[in-house]
């Protein structure tokens, strides 16, 4: 249940950004979560709905953009099918993750009268 600690960090960060930008009310958060980030999306939403109360995020919507995992050979750039052995047949090189482990706060939509 580390989703609760992720949400606590998320709300802290939004609070900091709100202070920095004179934000008064947060309407929506856009986050990006990778398939291999180890984050369960339903738990993340439940944790957000629970923890947002009485914070700057009270009433805010959590918009989650999911990112599927992708691996490629660092030498020949060949991509790997899901579930494949993560070593390039041609080059013998171990695959590198191209995307899929993101846990990113992308954007905050907030009322900021001074911006």
């Amino acid at each position: 249940m580390h989703e609760y600690s992720i949400v606590a960090s998320l709300i802290d960060r939004v609070q900091q950004e709100a202070v920095a930008h004179g934000g008064t009310r947060v309407h929506r958060l856009h986050v990006k979560i990778g398939e291999l980030a180890g984050v369960e999306l339903d738990l993340l939403k439940t944790a957000f709905d629970t923890f947002r109360e009485k914070t700057i995020c009270d009433g805010a919507e959590l918009a989650i953009d999911t990112v599927s995992a992708a691996w490629a050979c660092p030498v020949c750039n060949r991509s790997f099918a899901k579930g494949a052995i993560l070593r390039c047949d041609a080059c013998g090189q171990p695959a590198c993750m191209v995307r899929g482990d993101e846990i990113i706060l992308e954007r905050i939509e907030m009322e900021a009268p001074d911006v």
Binding site: S9, L10, E17, R25, L105, R107, M110, E111
Partner: peptide, 17 residues
């Protein structure tokens, strides 16, 4: 309606950790 501004962050949520 209040004006809503987008604030770009693009940061890891666990950046403090």
């Amino acid at each position: 309606d209040p004006e809503i501004v987008p604030i770009e962050v693009q940061a890891r949520i666990l950046s403090d950790n």
